Simulated assay, not measured.
Amino acid sequence: MTILDIARARLRAVIDPILTTRHDELPPPDDGTVVPLVAYFQWRGWTVVDRDSFTTAVLSYPGSFQGALDTEDRRQAALDDNLQKLEVELVVRGSHWIAHFSSCGVLIGCDRHRSIPLVVGVHALPFAAVLGDLERQARRRRPQDIAHCLLFGACSSQDTPGQLCLIPRVAPDEPAMLHVLPDHGEGRSR
């Protein structure tokens, strides 16, 4: 794959959703390798994370969390530890290509924001529709909502990660009591 092919794939990923209303093109026919599937995902705007053979590949969707994780001005990469971009692992099982998806969300958190695994046959009829829905959901996932829930909501609770995301009411702070210490002249020169 040349730089021109990569640039063309990224340009199509930006322009196609604007010009078309559907992204339901079927994946290419099986040629026994993962190469045409990787090209198909790259055409849709995905990036290759790992590809160690002709029968497996892991790809990531950079539009996850509205693209917030892929900006150059990120300061706290360590905060990403609990976040999961939309990813897919493509593997061949017998004579069928299988896509193991991890949806966009948090690894440990509430039902509303949790990343969910999903397995779909690549050449099954609903594949293109499922892929389009996963991409759409990943693009719409608001980083502000996730951050708020991770800090103040159910995603922050390690004990009950399955509860609904209910944000507690913020109580006004009590006035602070100031304690004035008498000045005994210590540390002063006379």
Rank of each mutant, 00 (worst) to 15 (best):
L4Y: 10
A176R: 12
V49P: 00
L166N: 06
Q137F: 06
A68L: 07
D183N: 15
V180S: 11
C149E: 10
L164P: 12
T2E: 14
S95A: 12
I98Y: 00
V35N: 10
D133F: 07
T160G: 03
R75K: 10
A9N: 15
E135G: 03
V120L: 09
V34T: 05
S103A: 06
S115L: 05
R139Q: 11
A78C: 04
P29W: 00
W97A: 01
R12I: 02
I3R: 12
L125R: 10
I116Y: 09
G132Y: 02
D81R: 12
G32R: 00
V49E: 14
V180K: 08
D73H: 13
D111S: 10
L69M: 15
P143R: 12
P17S: 09
R22N: 11
G45P: 04
P175T: 14
L134V: 01
V14T: 13
R114W: 05
P182I: 05
C149H: 12
V170K: 13
V122T: 03
V170I: 13
D111F: 04
D173I: 03
I146F: 14
P36Q: 04
R74G: 05
A78D: 13
H148K: 09
A176S: 14
D70H: 09
L164R: 13
S189F: 09
L83M: 11
H113L: 07
S103Q: 07
K85P: 02
F127E: 05
T56E: 14
V106N: 04
D24L: 15
A128Y: 05
G45W: 04
T71W: 08
S189V: 04
I98C: 03
L178T: 08
S157I: 01
R44H: 15
L118A: 06
A77P: 04
S64D: 03
S53V: 00
R44I: 00
S53M: 01
T47G: 09
A154L: 02
L181F: 11
E89Q: 09
H100I: 02
A57R: 01
M1W: 08
A171L: 13
S103V: 01
D145R: 12
H179G: 02
G109M: 08
P143W: 10
G162Q: 14
A147S: 10
H96G: 00
D73P: 00
D73F: 12
V170W: 14
E174W: 10
R93A: 10
L134R: 09
R169T: 10
R44S: 03
Q158C: 08
P28G: 04
L19M: 15
L83P: 05
L166A: 13
I108H: 14
P182R: 13
